[in-house]
Design a protein around this nucleic acid. Structure first.
Length: 425
RNA sequence: GGAGAGGUGGCCGAGUGGUUGAAGGCAGCCGCCUGCUAAGCGGUUGUGGGGGUCACACCUCACCCAGGGUUCGAAUCCCUGCCUCUCCGCCA
């Protein structure tokens, strides 16, 4: 969420940001109206509390001296009643103001290209080259089923659409990818491995910005009100919720491998086949907590860390800077990594790396303190996929498929797979 | 699931319902002192909001797990929730 004072004092900037995002300023107007009333009532409440504190103290003194305080008592009672009344309307205003504020998106960074939708995203760089095939390359789901390493049909039987069973070498490849990615990030990129809960509470979901706006994207557990995480960003960022970190502890780098769960409501008919859009998928996530002045550079570094995975797997990809109309609600800036899918003849998102500036930190109350200095500041949080395992799996099948139906295992993975190739058994 | 105990500042730890934002200790910071170090002496140190200032100063409100309640007044009393710990049972 944005700083209340910033919204109040730089309303023009917020209006501009909403405009760039193609969003109406209606929420802002509503927020400001409530906020102004809140401040008026707050002033009244505080003035009256001050009076009450004075009278109350006097009563205490009189009682101690054994004097009569009856007249003051009735006056104090009167004031208190009035305060109680005002307080309840103040509480309502505070709650309403917060609810509106939670719906206002982050302000895009200056460097983010202005654009309406994904068509105006800007390609930053590409790596590698499209693989050449002497035959018509197959879709990964056909390859996977043919090799008997992916089973969508039976997954449908036990769970439903948008689920998959990995089998044999398919299960092993999934595991190899997770190990490869985690090893790279922990051993070479300096991230600390985390294995967090995948069921989280409402506060955690609000902290990273999934709630209240995107409830329909989430699976909710009914008996205790847990939510299944749509990304490890949620539990891992919330590790430090409501904490004041020491400046010396920053930056903090975490990586986590978790299953992710998404309702995919509103994407009926999109990517109905294959691994691209599943209700459950594995992902290795990168999360950073950094000082504000460093978050821009940290985003570049984080993105490079994710790219390294693709480079080592020898997968052709490009980096795209999302335009203002396409960046996520909580993000100030986002780079998407898109990997080449030969069968579809297009680049598909495989990682999304974002700088959330202080937007999540303010929601989640993650601050830091400099030793010897007064006050605290909000950290900046960043995260990115490093990478989505299912989509990486799919990309490997498609890019490394052979004419005989087998799939070559990229060298970086061979050690984890114990084999150079997956063939039909 | 059953039975208990407990949640106070960066940490430890006090706290008869009325100058307690909170004793004391530790740690930190600033001085002083002592060949150096250690010790010693004095002072100082929470967070958030509102007002105020060029900026300080300063004024004020709130905060002793969270949310309600009792009261003129709550860290202190009552209720609910959350979390932690111990014992029993169950369990991967």
């Amino acid at each position: 969420m944005l700083d209340i004072r910033f919204v109040r004092e730089h309303t023009d900037k917020v209006i501009e940001a909403l405009g760039k995002r193609n969003e109406s300023t209606a929420i802002l107007d509503k927020f400001l109206e409530i906020e102004n009333r809140r401040r008026d009532v707050l002033k009244e409440v505080e003035d009256q509390r001050q009076t009450r504190n004075r009278v109350t103290k006097e009563i205490g003194t009189l009682k101690k001296e054994g004097k009569d305080a009856a007249s003051l008592l009735s006056r104090a009672k009167e004031i208190s009643d009035r305060i109680t009344e005002k307080e309840s309307s103040l509480r309502a205003l505070e709650e309403n103001a917060l609810q509106e504020l939670l719906l206002i998106p982050n302000v895009p960074d200056e460097s983010v290209p202005v654009g309406k939708d994904e068509n105006e995203n800007v390609e930053i760089r590409t790596w590698g080259a499209r693989p050449e095939f002497s035959f018509e390359p197959l879709n990964h789901w056909d390859i996977g089923e043919e090799l008997d390493i992916l089973d969508f049909e039976r997954a449908g039987k036990i769970a439903g659409a948008r689920f998959v069973i990995n089998k044999g070498a398919g299960a092993k490849l999934e595991r190899a990818l997770m190990n490869f990615m985690l090893n790279l990030h922990t051993k070479e990129h300096g991230y600390t491995e985390i294995f967090p809960p995948v069921l989280v509470n409402k506060e955690a979901m609000t902290g990273t910005g999934q709630l209240p706006k995107f409830e329909e994207d989430l699976f909710k557990e009914n008996s205790k009100g847990f939510y299944l995480i749509p990304t490890a960003e949620v539990p891992v960022t919330n590790i430090h919720r409501q904490e004041i970190l020491n400046e010396d502890d920053l930056p903090i780098y975490y990586t986590a491998h978790t299953p992710c769960f998404r309702r995919e409501a509103g994407s009926h008919g999109k990517d109905t086949r294959g691994l691209i859009r599943q209700h459950q998928f594995n992902k290795v996530e990168l999360v950073k907590f950094v000082k504000p002045e460093e978050s821009c550079n940290e985003l570049e570094a984080l993105t490079r860390n994710a790219e390294e995975v693709l480079m080592r797997l020898g997968l052709h990809y490009r980096v795209v800077s999302l335009c203002t109309g396409d960046i996520g609600f909580s993000a100030a800036k986002t780079y998407d990594l898109e990997v080449w899918f030969p069968a579809q003849q297009k680049f598909r998102e495989i990682s999304s790396c974002s700088n959330f500036t202080d937007f999540q930190a303010r929601r989640a109350g993650i601050r830091f303190k400099s030793p010897g200095k007064k006050g605290t500041r909000f950290v900046h949080t960043l995260n990115g996929s490093g990478l989505a395992v299912g989509r990486t799996f799919a990309a490997i099948l498609e890019n490394y498929q052979q004419e005989d139906g087998s799939v070559i295992i990229p060298e970086a993975l061979q050690h984890f797979m114990g084999t150079e190739k997956i063939s039909k058994s």
